[in-house]
Measured scan of single mutants.
Amino acid sequence: SGEEFIAMYTYESSEQGDLTFQQGDVILVTKKDGDWWTGTVGDKAGVFPSNYVRLKD
Rank of each mutant, 00 (worst) to 15 (best):
Ser1His: 09
Ser1Ala: 07
Ser1Asp: 12
Ser1Gly: 13
Gly2His: 15
Gly2Leu: 06
Gly2Val: 08
Gly2Tyr: 09
Gly2Ile: 08
Gly2Asn: 15
Glu3Pro: 04
Glu3Asp: 05
Glu4Lys: 05
Glu4Leu: 10
Glu4Ser: 08
Glu4Cys: 07
Glu4His: 05
Phe5Glu: 06
Phe5Trp: 11
Phe5Asp: 02
Phe5Lys: 01
Phe5Val: 06
Ile6Cys: 07
Ile6Asn: 05
Ile6Ala: 07
Met8Asp: 07
Met8Cys: 08
Met8His: 05
Met8Gly: 04
Met8Asn: 06
Thr10Gly: 13
Thr10Pro: 12
Tyr11Ala: 04
Tyr11Cys: 06
Tyr11Thr: 03
Tyr11Glu: 04
Glu12Lys: 13
Glu12Ile: 12
Glu12Asp: 11
Glu12Thr: 10
Glu12Asn: 09
Glu12Arg: 09
Ser13Glu: 05
Ser13Arg: 05
Ser14His: 13
Ser14Leu: 12
Glu15Ile: 10
Glu15Trp: 08
Glu15Phe: 11
Glu15His: 12
Gln16Val: 10
Gln16Tyr: 13
Gln16Ala: 12
Gln16Pro: 14
Gly17Leu: 06
Gly17Thr: 08
Gly17His: 11
Gly17Gln: 04
Asp18Thr: 12
Asp18His: 15
Asp18Lys: 14
Leu19Phe: 06
Leu19Glu: 01
Leu19Trp: 00
Leu19Thr: 01
Leu19Asp: 00
Leu19Gly: 01
Leu19Ile: 08
Thr20Gln: 09
Thr20Ala: 13
Thr20Cys: 13
Phe21Ile: 05
Phe21Tyr: 01
Phe21Thr: 01
Phe21Asn: 02
Phe21Gln: 03
Gln22Asp: 11
Gln22Leu: 08
Gln22Arg: 13
Gln23Met: 09
Gln23Val: 12
Gly24Tyr: 04
Gly24Asn: 06
Gly24Gln: 08
Asp25Met: 04
Asp25Arg: 00
Asp25Val: 01
Val26Arg: 12
Ile27Ala: 02
Ile27Asn: 07
Ile27Phe: 00
Leu28Asp: 04
Leu28His: 15
Leu28Arg: 14
Thr30Met: 08
Thr30Asn: 12
Thr30Trp: 12
Lys32His: 14
Asp33Gly: 05
Asp33Arg: 13
Gly34Arg: 09
Gly34Asp: 06
Asp35Phe: 09
Trp36Thr: 08
Trp36Asp: 06
Trp36Glu: 10
Trp36Tyr: 15
Trp36Leu: 11
Trp37Pro: 03
Thr38Cys: 09
Thr38Asn: 12
Gly39Leu: 02
Gly39Ala: 02
Gly39Ser: 00
Thr40Ile: 06
Thr40Trp: 14
Thr40Gln: 14
Val41Gln: 11
Gly42Pro: 02
Gly42Ser: 08
Gly42Asp: 10
Asp43Glu: 10
Asp43Lys: 13
Asp43Phe: 05
Asp43Pro: 10
Lys44Leu: 06
Lys44Met: 15
Lys44Ile: 01
Ala45Leu: 11
Ala45Lys: 05
Ala45Ser: 15
Ala45Phe: 03
Ala45Val: 14
Gly46Ile: 02
Gly46Leu: 02
Val47Met: 10
Phe48Leu: 03
Phe48Tyr: 02
Phe48Val: 00
Pro49Gln: 05
Pro49Arg: 04
Pro49Asp: 01
Ser50Val: 04
Ser50Arg: 15
Ser50Met: 09
Asn51Cys: 09
Asn51Leu: 07
Asn51Ile: 05
Asn51His: 06
Asn51Arg: 10
Asn51Tyr: 06
Asn51Ser: 13
Tyr52Gly: 00
Tyr52Glu: 03
Tyr52Pro: 01
Val53Leu: 06
Val53Ala: 06
Val53Ile: 04
Val53Arg: 01
Arg54Phe: 01
Arg54Trp: 10
Arg54Ser: 04
Arg54Pro: 03
Arg54Leu: 07
Leu55Asn: 08
Leu55Arg: 13
Leu55Gly: 15
Leu55Asp: 07
Lys56Thr: 11
Asp57Val: 03
